[in-house]
Amino acid sequence: MAEPILEVDALHSFYGKAHILNGLSFSVGRGEVVALLGRNGAGKTTTMKSVMQLVRPREGKVRFGGEDITGWPAHRVARRGLGYVPEERRIFTDLTILENLEVGRQARREGAPFWTVEALFELFPNLSERRHNRGKAMSGGEQQMLTIARTLMGNPGLLLLDEPSEGIAPVIVEQMARTILRFKDEGLTVIISEQNLHFARAVADRAVIIEGGEKKFDGSFAELENHPEIRDAYLSV
């Protein structure tokens, strides 16, 4: 693995009294694409939110670029170069597409790809056509593209994509996979959470499987092929 850009170290996170993450540790190397796999309720989304500090971990550390970011407010984490694309997308429906992008805009960042509105419209032509439309009347796929584009406007060094393939048409899923591979080419580090093993294998270098808030597997997809029992135990294929 290349030098780690993100280190998650023995994380414990709670929703109220519910213990969701149970000492989870993993790390991600610069330029790597890692897939977080696991069933519904395994703790994938909570992992993402805990990295972003949208959920405050009660124990453990999150280090980004060697710096301890645990306990920071989320906006500071984002300003440091972590981009988060939530599963529910959460686009601003009262704003136009251009305005949605404006919310995400941050200054150029060293060591991370630089995105302009035009570059993003090139990447997602559908958005370009509707740039002055409000976020209301968009399909699931278009919403997903908009959320990703909005986050990229912050020029993140690490992109957290929570279930990008969920609820969108198969054709778009394929397009999405190509897009993620393109991010990788640009030098972006990406973590995606997925239930779709096929999609994950197509885009990711490595799989981290979690169940009950604990890490159950960490390795390449080839290794995972050799251990069908792991797949059967922790993934619903």
Partner: peptide, 24 residues
């Protein structure tokens, strides 16, 4: 203005605005 865009976005979803790097 950018301020206005942020204000309107925050009216709808403050947490998300924060997650995009805006100090709410």
């Amino acid at each position: 203005t950018r301020l206005g865009v942020l204000v309107r976005a925050a009216t709808q979803d403050r947490e998300m605005v924060g997650a995009l790097g805006v100090n709410q």
